[in-house]
Measured scan of single mutants.
Amino acid sequence: MFKRLMMVALLVIAPLSAATAADQTNPYKLMDEAAQKTFDRLKNEQPQIRANPDYLRTIVDQELLPYVQVKYAGALVLGQYYKSATPAQREAYFAAFREYLKQAYGQALAMYHGQTYQIAPEQPLGDKTIVPIRVTIIDPNGRPPVRLDFQWRKNSQTGNWQAYDMIAEGVSMITTKQNEWGTLLRTKGIDGLTAQLKSISQQKITLEEKK
């Protein structure tokens, strides 16, 4: 169930391209415009997507990853294993993690069937560096609404905000991946996880038929 919630949630996290980005210092504006741009692209490019579902990787690479804190999220997933990894191991892992996100997020976007969304009203940021933004996803086919909290983090150097995690039903996506990959990290280390991520990233994206 959580895996499905995570995939549905990713439908609204794909941010804007650099040329049309919203105010990078306001995570609420980023979330709002990102959702609108993403849904528009999914709707307008269905012919290309249906002809070649792996085209979704391109959308992810162009529109999402430049505005997601990939390395920060990847380091959180590694936890204690990050500090013990060599620079070469980290570089290989982050490259594999990025390719994994292209496949995983692309597969999530393949679930698009006309969903709509509501974003919580903007709250004062103050001096906060981590801000959760509640998004409610509404399914046109009558499924119950899904309420999610996207975690946005302020870059201490640039002042810009980027998304790095999502919490559904009190469970963090980062925590879920830590639990899912924990045994592999304990037995085969970061190299074993890197190899698995490379394998997963090679899987073809498949479209979910409308139910």
Rank of each mutant, 00 (worst) to 15 (best):
D139M: 15
I59Q: 06
K29W: 10
G189A: 04
V12D: 00
R57F: 15
Y55I: 07
S17T: 13
I130P: 01
V8A: 11
Q202S: 13
L64V: 07
P15F: 13
P140C: 15
L5Q: 00
W181Y: 07
G106I: 06
T20F: 14
K37Y: 12
K198F: 07
S84R: 11
K83P: 05
D40G: 15
Q107H: 12
L125N: 08
K3F: 05
S84Q: 13
L125C: 06
R4Y: 15
Y28E: 13
G170M: 03
M111A: 09
D149W: 10
P27H: 03
R57S: 11
R41M: 07
I130K: 02
D127T: 10
A108V: 13
M1T: 01
Y93N: 04
V171P: 00
A168L: 15
P121A: 06
P124H: 09
R50D: 11
I49R: 04
D40V: 09
T136Q: 14
L56W: 07
Q36E: 07
I133D: 01
A108N: 04
D32M: 07
V68F: 15
Y82I: 01
R134I: 00
T38H: 03
A35V: 13
A120S: 14
K71L: 01
T20K: 09
T187Y: 15
A22I: 14
D23R: 10
N155I: 01
D149R: 01
G182K: 10
K188E: 11
R143F: 07
M166A: 07
F97P: 00
Q107C: 10
G170C: 03
P121F: 14
R143A: 05
K154A: 14
K83V: 07
N26Y: 06
R153Q: 01
Y112C: 06
K128S: 08
A73E: 02
Q48P: 13
L65W: 10
E122G: 11
A85M: 07
M6A: 02
M31I: 03
V68P: 00
A34L: 14
R143W: 07
P121L: 09
Q103V: 15
V135N: 05
T58G: 06
A34P: 03
H113M: 04
M166K: 01
N26S: 12
I205R: 03
L78A: 03
P66K: 03
F2S: 02
Q48S: 09
K71T: 06
T176K: 00
Q115W: 01
S172E: 00
A19M: 04
A21N: 11
I205A: 14
N155G: 02
D23Y: 10
Q123D: 05
F97S: 08
D40H: 14
Q24N: 14
K83D: 01
D32Q: 09
T136A: 11
N155K: 06
I205S: 09
K43G: 14
Y93R: 00
S17A: 13
V68M: 15
L30N: 05
K102C: 15
G126M: 15
G106Q: 02
Q123K: 06
I167T: 14
F2D: 00
V68Y: 02
R90Q: 04
Q178P: 04
M1V: 02
Q202V: 12
A104M: 15
L16C: 07
P140E: 15
Q89K: 06
L197R: 02
N52K: 11
F97Y: 10
L109Q: 07
S156A: 03
R186E: 00
D32A: 08
L5Y: 08
G159I: 06
V8H: 01
Q162R: 07
R143P: 05
R57M: 15
M6L: 10
K128W: 10
E180G: 04
L5G: 01
Q157H: 08
K210R: 14
L185N: 09
S17H: 06
A34E: 12
Y117Q: 07
Q80C: 04
V171D: 01
Y112T: 04
P140G: 13
P124K: 14
A110L: 15
A163Y: 05
P53F: 04
K211N: 10
E208A: 14
Q157N: 06
A168C: 08
D23F: 13
P15I: 03
P53Y: 07
S172R: 02
S201W: 05
Y112F: 05
S156W: 01
M6G: 01
T206M: 13
L197W: 09
I119N: 09
P145E: 06
V8E: 00
Y55A: 13
R153P: 00
Q157A: 09
T187H: 08
A35Q: 08
N155Y: 01
N160Q: 11
T158S: 10
Q24M: 12
W181K: 10
K211W: 14
H113A: 07
T38V: 14
R57H: 15
L109E: 12
T86Y: 07
A168M: 12
L5N: 00
Q46W: 03
G170W: 04
M7R: 03
Q103S: 14
T175F: 04
H113D: 05
Q118M: 12
V60I: 11
P27Q: 06
V131M: 13
L42G: 03
L65Y: 12
A104C: 08
K29Y: 13
I200Q: 08
T176I: 05
I130M: 09
I13Y: 06
G126N: 09
I167K: 02
L11Y: 03
T194L: 06
S84E: 13
A120H: 12
T58S: 11
E122F: 13
R186S: 02
F39G: 02
T206V: 09
I119D: 14
V146A: 10
F97M: 09
S17R: 12
M7L: 08
Q118S: 13
A96E: 12
Y112V: 07
F2L: 13
P140K: 15
Y112L: 04
Y72I: 01
E122K: 11
G182L: 12
T176Q: 00
Q151E: 09
P66M: 05
P15M: 07
A108I: 06
S17G: 14
N160S: 09
M31N: 05
P145H: 07
S156G: 05
Q115H: 06
I137Q: 15
G170V: 01
L30C: 11
R186A: 00
R41C: 06
N155H: 01
D23W: 06
Y105A: 00
L76D: 01
L10Q: 00
I59A: 14
I138R: 08
N179M: 04
L10C: 08
L193N: 07
D191L: 04
P132F: 05
A92E: 13
I190S: 10
D40A: 12
Y112D: 04
S156R: 02
R143S: 04
R98F: 08
N160D: 05
L11A: 03
K128V: 09
R98D: 14
Y105Q: 02
G189T: 06
E208Y: 09
I174T: 11
H113G: 07
Y72C: 01
D165L: 00
V77Q: 15
W161M: 06
K71I: 01
T136E: 07
K3V: 02
P145S: 09
K37S: 07
T129L: 09
R134G: 01
P27N: 02
L197E: 05
L148H: 01
K29V: 12
T206S: 10
T129G: 08
E209Y: 13
Y93S: 03
D191F: 04
L64N: 00
T194W: 03
R98G: 13
V60D: 02
E33W: 04
I133H: 01
T20P: 08
K29C: 12
V135T: 10
L11W: 06
R98Y: 12
D23I: 09
Q69M: 02
N141E: 05
A22K: 10
T158F: 07
Q69L: 01
